[in-house]
Design a protein around this nucleic acid. Structure first.
Length: 375
RNA sequence: GGGGAGAUACCAAAGCGGCCAACUGGGGCAGACUGUAAAUCUGCUGGCAAAUGCCUUCGUAGGUUCGAAUCCUGCUCUCCCCA
């Protein structure tokens, strides 16, 4: 299911392959986020042809509320519903319990929450989030967890981790006693929590490792803590998570975050940054990050990114993209999203190549320096 | 030719004696965004010191008043209606 192909000599970085029913995923990998069954503004065709996405995300909370499991069943699962035959991963909705915190209540049993769409009341449990994810049919599904906010009192974090662990046992039990609805194998990834407390992270990593799943995830990071804290937690957790299984750092991050995490042994990433920030005018380029809305680009007719991770990066100018974004044109969002995602995919692809060549560390340090530039 | 309405910062538009450097919208400028309630949100937008401060603004020239974008008079311009 997962095989490490090559390890970097001077760091924890590794290149691997995760085999799923819908295809092999070379790691390190970045997974574009397609919450409601769409990577916002991008055709599935372009995800493949322009971006080179190996796998994308969907979200249990969002898909459960709309269109709902009845339609998902009728459609034959999310793959068929959205016309995507590469691998899919669904988040369990744990993050929504965190980010929609004004509308929910946690109990031992699960989370009672209100729909952000119509205010209706719903209940998520470790068990029914497995059931829903069986119906959605993603190749990788996530355990229902609580993503603690930052900053967070130690006692709150401790209770939160304990609850997440009890929920994990229940999720694994349900996972084991149910079969895939659509016939293909689904991997359940448990999630390490513990806020920024080293001892809690260790305990959580032990717990997650002991679940013996195909891959493991680290959650509850990049929620406002300093990057150094995040890196420290990754180091702590990766000491414990098995080497021979993929490690998924949820919700991360900036290009620099990703390189630093790869350096520390992370294999999988997802983040809304390339798409959301792209729609808002932030472009990641080989020369650094730019805010395309800034006046200085008004008559810069050079390509968006001469290093051209996608064809749109070369075929459209900064001045044109600025015009589109400033004018609120849909095409601006599309071009920005395609470019940014292609940039991310190319970045992790290069990281993989450098690991294979045994030159990751040196390359990473140079890249971090370059990418930190704000143009 | 006669009658009426109006001229406010980049634009539109409030304000009709002091709480007005002037509501609000747009535009402009900048910032934020990390398992997507986000094609969203925030700040600034006369000048200078940039913290409390000072200086020049509401077509224009005068006037009334302790005090005017707000009241009065002349002028200029714009729009509408009737000939």
């Amino acid at each position: 299911m997962f095989a490490v192909v090559k390890r970097d000599g001077e760091s924890k970085a590794r290149a691997g392959v995760l085999k799923t029913a819908h295809g092999d995923i070379p790691t390190p990998v970045f997974m574009p986020v397609g919450t409601t069954g769409t990577v916002k503004g991008i055709l599935q065709r372009d995800l493949v042809d322009e971006i080179g996405a190996w796998i994308i995300l969907g979200n249990t909370y969002h898909l459960y509320l709309r269109p709902g499991t009845t339609i998902m069943k009728e459609a034959g699962g999310l793959h068929r519903f959205m016309g995507w035959d590469r691998p899919l991963l669904t988040d369990s909705g744990g993050y929504q319990v965190f980010s929609l915190s004004g509308n929910r209540k946690l109990t031992e049993e699960g989370a009672i929450f209100r729909s952000h769409i119509d205010g209706s009341k719903h209940f998520f449990t470790p068990e029914n989030t497995i059931d829903i994810q069986r119906i959605i049919g993603a190749d990788i599904i996530m355990a229902f967890d609580e993503c603690a906010p930052f900053p967070c009192e130690y006692n709150y974090a401790r209770r939160s981790v304990d609850l997440t662990h009890r929920w994990l046992d229940r999720a694994v039990a349900r996972y084991r006693e149910t079969d895939p609805v659509w016939g293909h194998e689904q991997f359940l990834f448990p999630i390490v929590q513990g806020s920024t407390f080293e001892d809690l992270r260790k305990i959580s990593a032990e717990k997650v490792a002991s679940a013996g799943m195909t891959g493991n995830a680290i959650g509850g990071l990049s929620v406002g803590e300093p990057a150094e804290e995040m890196y420290r937690m990754i180091e702590t957790v990766n000491e414990i998570l098995p080497e021979d299984k993929p490690r998924y750092l949820m919700g991360v991050g900036t290009p620099v975050n990703i390189l630093e995490a790869i350096d520390r042994g992370i294999d999988m990433f997802d983040c809304v940054m390339p798409t959301r920030n792209g729609r808002n005018g932030m472009l990641f380029t080989g020369e650094g990050t730019i805010n395309i809305k800034n006046r200085k680009w008004i008559n810069d007719f050079s390509p968006i990114d001469p290093e051209g991770p996608s064809s749109v990066s070369l075929n459209y100018s900064k001045a044109y993209l600025r015009h589109l974004i400033i004018s609120g044109e849909i095409l601006g969002s599309q071009i920005s999203s395609i470019h940014n995602l292609a940039f991310y995919l190319k970045l992790v692809g290069e990281a993989r190549k450098k690991i294979e060549e045994g030159d990751f560390k040196r390359w990473k340090n140079a890249m971090v320096k370059k990418l930190s530039e704000r143009l």
